[in-house]
């Protein structure tokens, strides 16, 4: 049964290339659609170029929305990477 899930995190550092890659690799493994929103910008989390194109920087809030059978797990994975990876930059 498809479901949707949403959560937000405030970035501790800028969203650089390596964490963007980690997000896209992780997102692609889920069946659900996964979208990141920062301010007025949205990106498909499965597209590393779109994620990098968000230009998300330290202190900004990122909202993760997923829809599909593994939406909850997808959101948890994205939030985990966003919280950890932006601590050290990339």
């Amino acid at each position: 049964m498809p479901e949707s899930c949403e959560a937000s995190v405030t970035l501790a550092g800028d969203l650089h290339a390596r964490p963007a890659g980690a997000l896209a690799v992780a997102a692609a493994k889920f069946t659900s659609s996964v979208e990141l929103t920062v301010g007025a910008s949205r990106a498909d989390a499965k597209s590393v170029l779109a994620v990098m194109g968000l230009g998300a920087s330290s202190g900004q809030q990122v909202t993760v929305r997923a829809a599909g059978p593994d939406a909850r797990e997808a959101v948890e994975a994205m939030i985990g990477i966003l919280a950890e990876a932006t601590k050290v930059g990339g």
Binding site: A17, A24, V25, A27, A28, K29, K46, V48, L49
Partner: peptide, 15 residues
């Protein structure tokens, strides 16, 4: 550059 990055990330995810 963009193509190499996007292709490699998709390959890494098992595409």
């Amino acid at each position: 550059v963009e193509g190499a990055v996007a292709a490699t990330v998709t390959a890494a995810a098992g595409g």
